[in-house]
Computed example of a mutant assay.
Amino acid sequence: MTVEGPLATPEIGNCYGEAELARLPAAHPAVTADRIGVLLVNLGTPDAPTSRAVRRYLAEFLSDRRVVELPSLIWQPILRGIVLAVRPRKSAKAYREIWTSEGSPLAAITRRQAKALQASLGGDAVVAHAMRYGSSPIADGIDALLAAGCRRILVAPLYPQYCAATTASVSDAVQAHMARLRWQPALRILPPYHDDDRHLEALASSLGRAIGGLDFVPDTIVASFHGMPERTLHLGDPYHCMCLKTARRLGEVLGKTVVPSFQSRFGKAKWLTPATDMMLEALGREGRSVAVIAPGFAADCLETLEEIAIRGREQFLAAGGRHFAYIPCLNDSDVGMDMLTALVRSDLSGWL
């Protein structure tokens, strides 16, 4: 794991004044100035669009008890015996549809976001990035910031809406690594920003600019969020409510109706509705012109670029739809990075 900011150099730290530093024995480890670190975290991605790489990634991802809330004795035989025997090949094919010269779009965009955030923050903080699953694990990101002299760290899960399967899982991984550290840094975690005015205005600006460049005027704007089993709502997860609020508030900023839906259903359980695929098919049958935005994703990934922009488009047009446009995520766009920088600076208040 590398950090975007310069590495720490031996300087006077908070524990020592110049006189104390001068009296340190020659073999004493270098004393560094305390610094502030920011760790951007997203979900993760396979290392390659191959069945083997996808199987390794899915085995970790789907073994997280935050993601699949079934007893291990029940779920692991299903995962190992059925899911990992079938799904990796299908998912690898989907990844090949979107793979770039930089590798996985999610990994490439997250790297660019970290680099852009470092440029915006300058010397105020050191920025690193990590993934919850797969390569670039959270533990490595924390260790890299500690090695750079960071004694105060803001962990920023790039999930606008809180969900136990995403935000809480990041917190779990952070705390698990913290439990192994003898000298723990001060820690903050960026809260959800689903209804933050800066986020909504960035989404509206991005959407307006994209629609302005289309050769048609959409009569329907769909906000597609990642789906979750419906039982999570009844168990108290605020994700569903936050998604609906994002769509409603975004519509208010735009002065247009934004229709929420939920994608990526998996398994036989009842999931949050309405389902994006079913909605797109219904809108297609009505001959609509549609623009789809994914305001639950900070960076484009398999679920947006393949599931919506490719398969969703095909399904919509095959059903009779007139025009379809997928609007990219904020990614590392200027408006997106201005928003992210503002959020991070707000949560570094008192440290900067």
Rank of each mutant, 00 (worst) to 15 (best):
D140Q: 12
G123F: 01
W183C: 10
A173I: 03
V127A: 08
M279P: 00
L181E: 08
L254A: 12
Q315D: 06
L254D: 03
R152Y: 05
L280Q: 11
G134R: 01
S333V: 07
V127M: 11
P229F: 00
A148Y: 10
P185Y: 04
A19R: 11
R345F: 01
A156F: 07
V155F: 05
G5D: 03
D334M: 05
G212T: 11
E201L: 08
S104K: 06
R249S: 13
D334E: 15
C163M: 14
S91N: 11
T50R: 10
E307C: 01
G208D: 00
V41N: 03
R87K: 11
D34Q: 14
R132A: 15
G267Y: 00
V83M: 07
A27Y: 08
T166D: 01
I189E: 13
P71R: 01
L58K: 09
G81Y: 08
S171C: 15
Q184M: 09
L7V: 09
A298L: 14
G255P: 10
A275C: 06
L21F: 11
C241Q: 14
C243L: 01
T167P: 05
H28P: 05
E230W: 00
A148T: 06
V3G: 13
Q76V: 10
V170H: 01
T50N: 06
L181V: 08
P46G: 12
G312K: 11
C150P: 04
C163Y: 05
S63F: 06
R66G: 14
S349V: 07
G122Y: 04
T45P: 09
L190Y: 07
M278Q: 14
H226I: 12
L250N: 05
D219H: 07
A26F: 12
P29K: 02
D277T: 00
R111C: 09
K115E: 15
E281S: 13
F324K: 03
F316E: 02
K115M: 14
I153L: 12
S333G: 08
M228N: 11
V155L: 02
R209K: 15
V253T: 13
M131K: 01
H323W: 00
P49R: 04
M242S: 12
A128H: 03
C301D: 11
A282F: 03
P10C: 07
V86I: 12
W183N: 13
E18H: 07
G44K: 06
R231D: 10
D143W: 01
S91H: 03
I153E: 02
P295W: 06
S205P: 00
L214D: 05
A173T: 05
G134H: 11
L84M: 08
L145D: 01
N331T: 07
G81L: 04
A164H: 07
S349G: 13
R248P: 01
I12A: 12
E314N: 15
A168F: 04
I189R: 08
I189D: 04
G212W: 10
C243Y: 09
F216K: 12
T45Y: 09
A294K: 07
Y159L: 03
F262C: 04
S91L: 14
G251M: 09
T276E: 03
A107K: 13
K245N: 13
G227P: 10
E314L: 13
D47M: 11
S91A: 15
E307M: 02
G236A: 01
L207G: 11
K270G: 02
C163E: 07
F316N: 11
P105R: 00
M339Q: 11
M228Q: 15
T9F: 06
I74H: 02
L24I: 06
P88R: 05
G44A: 07
R52L: 12
